Simulated scan of single mutants.
Amino acid sequence: MKDLLGLMGKAKEMQAKFQAMQEEIAGIEATGQAGGGLVGVTLTGKFEMKSIKIDPSLFKEEEVEILEDLLLAAHNDAKAKIEAIMQEKTRDLTAGLPIPPGMKLPF
């Protein structure tokens, strides 16, 4: 019975830590770039787009497809940065826990 109470206490502690980590992640931002910095996209930790920066030299009618591709690339770059930060914070929080590799925690 003592082990069960200890386990429940640890589960509550982990839940509180995960909640704090989620709040911390929600507050982070990452900026992805494409085209050598001609296009930038900033995302929050919740993957919400906060800003877009586009170099005026890209505002040419014949380069619309290039601009669209650069926006997608910048967004994906920012998303990858946010995911890497989330993965690092999760790894730090779960260090030492017997969690199977590849298991995604609920975020």
Rank of each mutant, 00 (worst) to 15 (best):
M1G: 15
D3W: 12
D3N: 12
D3Y: 12
L4K: 04
G6D: 14
M8K: 06
G9D: 11
E13P: 06
M14N: 02
M14E: 01
M14H: 01
M14L: 15
Q15P: 07
Q15F: 09
A16D: 07
F18S: 14
F18C: 11
Q19V: 15
Q19N: 10
Q19A: 15
M21E: 03
E24N: 09
E24I: 01
I25L: 15
I25W: 05
I25Y: 04
G27N: 06
E29D: 07
E29G: 05
A30R: 14
A30W: 04
T31A: 04
T31F: 02
G32W: 09
Q33V: 09
A34K: 00
G35W: 00
G36L: 00
L38F: 00
L38T: 00
V39M: 09
V39C: 06
V41G: 01
V41C: 03
V41Q: 01
L43D: 03
K46G: 11
F47Q: 13
E48W: 01
M49W: 11
I52T: 08
I54G: 01
P56T: 00
S57P: 05
L58G: 03
L58T: 00
F59N: 10
F59C: 11
F59P: 05
K60C: 03
E62I: 05
E65L: 01
E68T: 10
E68Y: 02
D69Y: 03
L70I: 06
L70C: 05
L72E: 09
A73Y: 02
H75T: 15
H75N: 14
H75W: 15
N76P: 07
D77S: 05
D77E: 08
A78C: 10
K79G: 02
K81E: 05
E83L: 08
A84M: 08
A84G: 11
I85H: 05
I85D: 09
M86L: 10
M86K: 12
Q87M: 07
Q87T: 15
T90N: 12
T90H: 02
T90V: 14
R91L: 08
R91I: 04
D92I: 07
L93A: 09
L93M: 12
A95D: 10
A95T: 14
A95V: 08
G96F: 01
G96Y: 04
P98L: 06
I99N: 00
I99H: 02
I99E: 06
P101N: 03
P101G: 05
L105H: 00
P106E: 02
